Simulated assay, not measured.
Amino acid sequence: MNRVMDELRGKYPDAEARLIDLAEQHMQFADGRGYLEYEGDTGDVARALMEADAIIIGTPIFQASIPGALKNVFDLLPVNAFQDKVVGIVVTAGSPKHYLVAEQQLRPILAYMKAQVVQSYVFIEAKDVYRGELVNDDAALRIERLVEDTVTLTRAYSQMREEREAQYAF
């Protein structure tokens, strides 16, 4: 995700971006309350996601599934949390056998939450990373394309939304 942030800041310096690392947050488990009722890190993360125009989710795959921490974040939010938001996906996994986790688990959740998901997600295997650095040039190019597509789609959907809202006289 650091590579994603570097790419975003380098090509789109005017874009407001924030990296949220769930490992650094003290998150409460979702208990059915509205997201605005949570305080501390949990409330901050939920509100940041609800206020964002676009989101790029970076997640590892553990035991052939998305991590529970990520699922918990989804559980904190309302069903339509990602309506009118563009969502890109970056997945890392230890095995090429896990490439479909994003397709079969993450995409359906995002679609249910009404996200506009960027068509191509980035799948990175453990062999593509050495000592925390991305060493696969193809993966770097796919990240570059994901960032470009996310920004382009966000701008397009924003313009479409503005045109739609302009049709109403209030």
Rank of each mutant, 00 (worst) to 15 (best):
A81F: 05
F82V: 11
F82E: 02
F82M: 06
Q83W: 03
Q83E: 13
Q83T: 07
D84W: 08
D84L: 10
D84Q: 12
K85C: 09
V86L: 06
V87E: 01
V87R: 04
V87L: 05
V87T: 11
G88A: 05
G88C: 08
I89F: 03
V90S: 04
V90R: 04
V90Y: 05
T92K: 03
A93E: 09
A93C: 11
G94I: 12
G94A: 12
P96A: 09
K97W: 06
K97V: 06
H98D: 10
Y99A: 03
Y99V: 15
L100F: 14
L100R: 08
L100K: 05
V101A: 12
V101D: 03
V101E: 04
V101L: 03
A102M: 10
E103I: 10
Q104I: 11
Q104H: 14
Q104F: 10
Q105E: 11
R107P: 01
P108M: 06
I109Q: 01
A111K: 11
Y112H: 11
Y112A: 08
Y112S: 10
Y112F: 13
M113R: 05
K114M: 13
K114A: 03
K114Q: 14
A115C: 02
Q116E: 03
Q116W: 03
Q116T: 14
Q116F: 12
Q119R: 15
S120H: 14
S120A: 13
Y121C: 01
Y121D: 06
Y121F: 15
Y121N: 14
Y121A: 09
V122Q: 06
V122A: 08
F123V: 11
I124A: 06
I124R: 02
I124F: 04
I124V: 15
E125V: 14
A126Q: 15
A126C: 05
A126G: 09
K127I: 14
K127G: 08
K127F: 02
D128P: 04
V129M: 09
V129G: 07
Y130D: 09
G132V: 13
G132K: 12
G132Y: 09
G132Q: 08
G132S: 10
E133P: 00
E133H: 09
L134W: 04
V135P: 01
D137H: 06
D137M: 12
D137G: 09
D138F: 08
D138K: 15
D138N: 13
A139I: 05
A139W: 02
A139F: 00
A140T: 07
A140I: 11
L141R: 15
R142F: 08
E144T: 13
R145T: 13
L146A: 03
V147F: 00
V147G: 04
E148S: 10
D149F: 02
T150N: 02
V151I: 15
T152Q: 12
T152R: 14
L153P: 00
L153F: 12
L153H: 01
L153K: 08
T154W: 04
R155F: 00
A156C: 01
A156W: 05
Y157I: 13
Y157Q: 04
S158Y: 01
S158K: 13
S158W: 03
Q159H: 08
M160C: 04
M160S: 10
R161Q: 10
R161T: 07
R161V: 01
E162G: 02
E162T: 09
E162Q: 13
E162S: 10
E163F: 08
E163I: 13
E165R: 13
E165N: 14
A166R: 15
A166E: 07
Y168L: 14
Y168H: 11
Y168K: 09
Y168C: 01
Y168A: 09
A169I: 11
